[in-house]
């Protein structure tokens, strides 16, 4: 089973990013494949390396980067959604890349299941 993951909401403001992270982490731990994690709508804010939560809280952005590094995940931020929200290459945390919406559609085609997190 190979999953595609779609994150539709920003970090901290909404549970979606936490749920997506936990789902992805659990799937990988069970040996499932993750074709791609795609960040859309306010989800693009999950890639902002300037995010600096209090030290006693989870660091959502860094957590994605670390999971990406560990499993060589393809973490893709939608260019159109990102530009609207001021997320550009120079703001990207490690392991993220910016690309087009076609990457999401392709993930839908290539994955056995595309799982969407958000409202």
């Amino acid at each position: 089973m190979k999953f595609g993951i779609l994150v539709n909401e920003g970090p901290f403001n909404h549970q979606a990013s936490d749920s997506a992270y936990k789902f992805t982490e659990a799937a990988l731990a069970k040996g499932y494949g993750i074709y791609r994690v795609f960040f859309y709508y306010d989800g693009v804010n999950n890639a902002n390396k300037l995010s600096e939560p209090p030290s006693d809280d989870r660091h959502i952005v860094r957590r994605w980067s670390e999971l990406g590094k560990k499993y060589n995940l393809d973490l893709v931020v939608c260019v159109a959604a990102a530009l609207r929200r001021g997320i550009k290459d120079e703001l990207l945390a490690e392991g993220f890349r910016i690309s087009g919406l076609g990457q999401l559609i392709e993930a839908g085609i290539q994955s056995d299941r595309l799982v969407m997190f958000g409202d």
Partner: peptide
Amino acid sequence: TVYALEVLEMVLISAAFEQ
């Protein structure tokens, strides 16, 4: 909210993929 607009952007791209 921005959802309706950004859904349309997805719709148009998936059409380009001939889905």
